[in-house]
Computed example of a mutant assay.
Amino acid sequence: MDTLTVPQGNFQLARFPVRNKETLRAWDASDEYLLHQLSEEGYPSHDSRVLICNDSFGAISIALADNLPTMQTDSFISQQATLNNLRINDLPESSVAHINSLTSLSSVLPKDAKFDLLIIKITKSLAQLEDQLQRLRPYLTAETKIIAAGMVKGIHTSTLQLFEKIIGPTHTSLARKKARLIFCQYDATLIPPENNYPKHYLLENTQYQITNHANVFSREKLDIGTRFFIQNMPANSHYRNIIDLGCGNGIVGLIAGEKNPAAKVHFIDESYMAVASAKENFGRAFPERSAEFIVTDCLKGVSDNSCDLILNNPPFHQQNTVGDFIAQQMFKESYKVLNKGGELWVIGNRHLGYHVILKRLFNNCETVASNKKFVILKAVK
C-alpha cells in the first residue's frame, strides 16, 4: 500500500483485488496532475455537485470525498476498490455515491439540476468515451467545469475530437510526468450526432441478434477467438449448471445454452455493460428460459461445488496493466466453484502458457483443440 500526497491530503491507497507484495500503485501521474490542478483553481466548492467517471481504484474520489462526489464506472472492481480505500482512510462509505455506466444520471440529481464539476479519467476504449459523453451532455451547462485526465500515450487526436463533437471547444495542458489534462467548455448551441451505441449484428451462421454496449469487446462482429471457442463447444447431459466466466456479450454462454438445453447458464463479468449485453442477448434468443446474470469480481459470491462446467476466455490486462494475475484468480476460484468431476474450459493465445497454471491447480490439463493462434484447454476437478 502506498501514500498519495496531494493538496487535498495524504491518502493510503491499495489496488483491488488486494494482492500480497503488490508492486503497482493505485493511481497514476494523471490523477496527481488533476488533483493539483483542481486545488490551484479552487475546485470544487463545498456545495458543488461533482461527478467522477472511470476512477480506476478511487484515488480521485477518495481525495474529494469531503465533497460527497458521485462516482460512475463500468467496473465492479473499481467500485470495490473505492469502498476498500474509503475504509482504509477511515472515511464513511457514504462519502462517495456509486452508480454504474448504465444508470440514469437523473437518479443522482435533484430535478432539473446539473453537475458543477465533471471529472473524466480517459480509458482505453474510445467507444466507451463516446457513449459516455453522449450520456453526460444533458446534465452539463456552460457553468460546468469539465476536466479530463490521462497519460499522454492514451490521449489522441481522436480523443479530443470526441469532446469537440459532443460537448464543445477543447484544449489540452502541457504534459507533466507523461500525463496530460483535457479542458472542455460546454457549448449549448452544438448539435451532437446521435449516440451510436449499443451496436447490433447478426451472429454468423445463426439467427441470433447480438447487442453490444459500448464497453464490450468486439462490438462490431464476432472475434476470431470466440468463433474458435464456440466451434468446439462441449455438450453433455451431465452439465446442469454452466458458467460463462468473463462473459462479455454472452455469446459463449448463449451457444453453450443452445448445445445444452437442459442446463442453466450463469453469465458473470465485472463489467456492467457486458452483463447487460449478455442478458439482452440470451433473453432474446431464449425468452422462456431461466438464466442468471451476475456482476462481480471473478467468482466472488458464487457457492463452492455448485457448477459442472465453466467456460472462460481470461483477460490478460487490468486497465493498462498486462499480466496473468486475473487468469490465475479465475482459475483458482473456478476450482472451488466446480463440483467434483466438473470441467474448466479455457481459451487463450498459444503463447500465454495457461496449461502450466492449470496443471498446478488441477493436477491435469488436456488440449481440446488448437490452431495457429489459439488453444482450448480442459482441466477437470
Rank of each mutant, 00 (worst) to 15 (best):
D269W: 02
K279H: 09
A29H: 14
G248T: 06
L174M: 11
H317Q: 04
Y201F: 15
N195F: 11
N205F: 09
A175C: 11
I230N: 10
S370T: 15
A285E: 02
G150V: 13
A127E: 13
I376R: 11
L105M: 14
Q318W: 01
A256T: 05
T5V: 12
H317A: 02
E220M: 07
I210K: 10
D308P: 08
T144H: 10
L203I: 08
L4N: 07
P44M: 05
F16K: 12
C365V: 15
T3M: 12
S48V: 04
D66I: 05
T170W: 04
S48L: 04
C53A: 12
R49T: 14
A14E: 15
D324T: 05
K300H: 09
S95Q: 10
Y139T: 02
V375C: 03
A81Y: 07
L51E: 01
T23E: 14
T367R: 06
T5R: 13
Y272T: 02
H266V: 15
D74H: 04
L102R: 11
A65N: 15
Y335P: 00
G9E: 13
K336H: 14
I243D: 13
A235D: 07
N236W: 09
S78P: 09
F374V: 01
W27Q: 05
K264G: 14
E258R: 08
P261Y: 08
L24V: 12
A285S: 14
G154E: 13
T123V: 01
D28G: 09
L64Q: 05
R25Q: 12
I326N: 01
A235S: 15
S101T: 06
A97G: 07
I243G: 10
L133N: 00
S104R: 13
L91I: 14
S271G: 04
T170Q: 10
L174E: 13
A214V: 02
